[in-house]
Design a protein around this nucleic acid. Sequence first.
DNA 1: CTCCCACGTACCATCGATGTCGGGTTCGGG
DNA 2: CCCGAACCCGACATCGATGGTACGTGGGAG
Lengths: 130, 130
Amino acid sequence: MRIGELARRTGVSERSLRYYEEQGLLRPDRTPGGHRDYPESAVDRVIRIQELFAAGLHSAKIAQLLPCMRDADGGPSEIATPRLVAELAAERERIDRMIADLRRSRDVLDEVIDTASEGRATVLRPRGAA
Amino acid sequence: MRIGELARRTGVSERSLRYYEEQGLLRPDRTPGGHRDYPESAVDRVIRIQELFAAGLHSAKIAQLLPCMRDADGGPSEIATPRLVAELAAERERIDRMIADLRRSRDVLDEVIDTASEGRATVLRPRGAA
DNA sequence: CTCCCACGTACCATCGATGTCGGGTTCGGG
DNA sequence: CCCGAACCCGACATCGATGGTACGTGGGAG
């Protein structure tokens, strides 16, 4: 399929798809005229790329990681090197820490939201200075 | 305390502390000579600011949020407006989605790491909380 | 009074993914 | 053949927090 359809089906802009290719994350064929021609599997791949970006991985790391992932087509086409595995383990721990941080921040937001709810009740039923 | 000590105790650069002030997140007193003079409570406050930044909140929203938080000094100095509460609830959901995404990405990394480990000698891999 | 470090302000640079713009080319239906 | 839509490419802009630089000043110890 061409870039327009892939953009529509993934929700990712054409600009970003070209950027992904520039970063080595996608390698579409080209029509004789030079237009990009993506296989069906590109849809899943783009979605996975987006997830990894959301996890804070940089394009360079994703580029190393992608060939080691189980593709929709079958098994991984490459096996991660020990060095890459170490880096991924580090990313894994970073993600764990990030999840913990996010949980704390979420709790903070909950506290403020709760306090505001109580405050509103207090406004309706004043109880003296606090 | 002055900015250098606060930077040392929080691990946040002086540059960032000045930026926080510029964004209305900190309002230190000034010495007669113009140097910033922070209260002891600024340490906790800066740490909280960092957590909120890590959660993806922008400085403007943190500026609104901070006065509504329970301070080390006592209760919140302000109560969140309904409008702010709505925005915070939206942030809360965004954080929830982010956590879910991060879990998925972590699983992806685990899969790659596992695949790489198969066939090799058993590798000790930290098994964090699921 | 003099040092010198810590501090002040102001400004420009950086990172990475993405937006945007402009000008040129390909494609496919009529 | 013609036209408009879709595509290509290259280059510049953007966002936000932070780093870094340059240059001037406060402040405490000697």
